[in-house]
Amino acid sequence: MFDRHQDLKTIKRCKRGEEAAFAEILTRYRGAIYNLCYRMTRNGEDARDLAQEVFIKVFSLLDRFDESYAFSSWLFRIATNHCIDHLRRNRLKFLSLDGAVGKDGEEYELQFPGKEPEPDTVLQRKEAMEKVEEVIADLPPHYRAIILLRHDQQLSYDEIAETLQMPLGTVKARIHRARNLLQQMLKNRSYDL
């Protein structure tokens, strides 16, 4: 999705201290990183702060970037880890009604009284989107990140494996579980698609 060779050329210019090159990278990626942070946190201010911190970190560490990998993978890895760290620090904020994360990072079921389905509600597409966004925000952070990388950023399985530094099989299994959980949570809330 992102042009690896174009990125590499721009990064080489960044390393020479060309101001315009940094601005180019920012223009190319700020939307993707801000939206990733926004969907990870569901909070505009947090998303802005996190995304800015990600870019500041990346731009100060360019000398450590291994050019044999895609720049986008490195950037998304830093952004994903930064968001997950933020969520861990603010753990209470992301306890969901459908699932939460245990010490081992796996989600467990929280028992709450069932929510009554709203009668005769025909969801418009826009409303349905909002519901989906709401449910994504309640996924455990690791699942949320992988769903966003796959569907929102439209990264391939290979790119996600490179981004999250995981074996391809683990990526596929985690995406599979994340989608199942997403579907289950939509059903639990009686959100018809």
Binding site: G31, Y38, R125, M129, I136
Partner: peptide, 8 residues
């Protein structure tokens, strides 16, 4: 829907 989530 996941593929077409609106950009913020």
């Amino acid at each position: 829907m996941l593929q077409t989530l609106p950009d913020h």
